[in-house]
């Protein structure tokens, strides 16, 4: 994976949006954003309604993913370009999801919705009509998804990276500051996790920083160079969307091989009984 195969610019989207085989997909935290205006031709995926099981706390399964993409008119050979608000947090989460179910050509629009809006590029409220497709998903690729027991075992051994803000890491805040402070039972972080906020990987306009800047950022935090000089890594945040952004940087842009996103993240870990927690600005010991 590389920047060229994983990321497209706004200019690229304007040139290729109408190409057959290119499907634009908006994924947002604010699921009403699409309804107010979106890129011409884009379909919507609601990260909560469409991507989460309605009862259990888990993903939709392989068959549900097949049904979703088929209904949206997305085929296995399509080039899927994801974008969204919040600096592409949920678009990156969806990207990771598409990869988990084996979609071969999926990309992120660099800068997402914000960059598009700040450039004063056009939005429309017209909904595209796409004929249903027959999508076949692969078995979930669990080499990119971490679960809680693996995370506990990784304390002091793997490179754990907490990508939340410094105040969330230290336990002074329990959720991002644009959301009410409701979250896990306890504040703090997983012992030995480094704090590299996702925002350090992005410019103010939401585009990703250069490969050189990104490499330096994670090297300074103790992660070696990709593709083989790095350590086995697990990224987490509060609910797994910001850490999907960092997973994208490490796995897709910088080419680190073994990087997992822990989507249970702090809302799960910080509510587990009996697991170690570190508070304050230091990583703590394992």
């Amino acid at each position: 994976m590389s920047r060229e195969s994983a990321l497209v610019t706004a200019d690229w989207v304007q040139e290729h949006a109408d190409d057959p085989g290119v499907v634009l997909v908006e994924v947002d935290e604010d699921t009403t954003a699409y309804d107010k205006g979106h890129l011409a031709g884009a379909v919507k995926i609601d990260w909560r309604q469409d991507l989460q099981d309605p009862v259990r706390r888990d993903f939709i399964d392989q068959q549900q993913f097949e049904a979703l993409l088929s209904q949206r008119g997305i085929g296995n050979d399509d080039t899927v370009v994801l974008y969204g608000g919040n600096n592409n947090w949920f678009a990156a989460y969806a990207y990771w999801y598409f990869k988990l179910y084996g979609h071969s050509d999926v990309r992120l629009l660099d800068g997402g919705r914000k960059k598009w809006e700040l450039d004063s590029r056009e939005l429309t409220d017209e909904r595209p009509v796409r004929e249903a497709a027959t999508y076949v998903a692969q078995q979930p690729d669990l080499s990119i998804r971490a679960f809680r027991d693996e995370v506990v075992d990784a304390i002091g051994t793997r490179f754990l990276v907490d990508v939340r803000s410094p105040d969330e890491y230290a336990g002074r805040l329990l959720a991002p500051a644009h959301l009410p402070q409701e979250s896990a039972q306890r504040g703090g972080h997983i012992p030995t996790a480094a704090n590299v906020p996702w925002s350090k990987a992005a410019n103010d306009d939401g585009t990703f920083r250069s490969d050189e800047e990104l490499t330096r950022l994670y090297e300074a935090a103790g992660l070696g160079r990709g593709t083989d000089g790095g350590k086995d890594t697990i990224a987490y945040c509060r609910i797994g969307e910001r850490s999907a952004h960092t997973w994208f940087v490490l796995h897709e842009l910088l080419g680190h091989d073994n990087v997992k996103n822990y989507d249970g993240s702090w809302t799960e870990y910080g509510s587990l009984v009996g697991v170690p927690i570190a508070v304050g600005d230091e990583p703590g010991s394992g």
Binding site: N86, D167, L173, P176, A177, P197, K200
Partner: peptide
């Protein structure tokens, strides 16, 4: 929203 060290904390439209 940036903290007292200038670190990004949150963003809204």
């Amino acid at each position: 929203l940036l903290d007292s060290d200038g670190e990004f904390v949150a963003e809204v439209a």
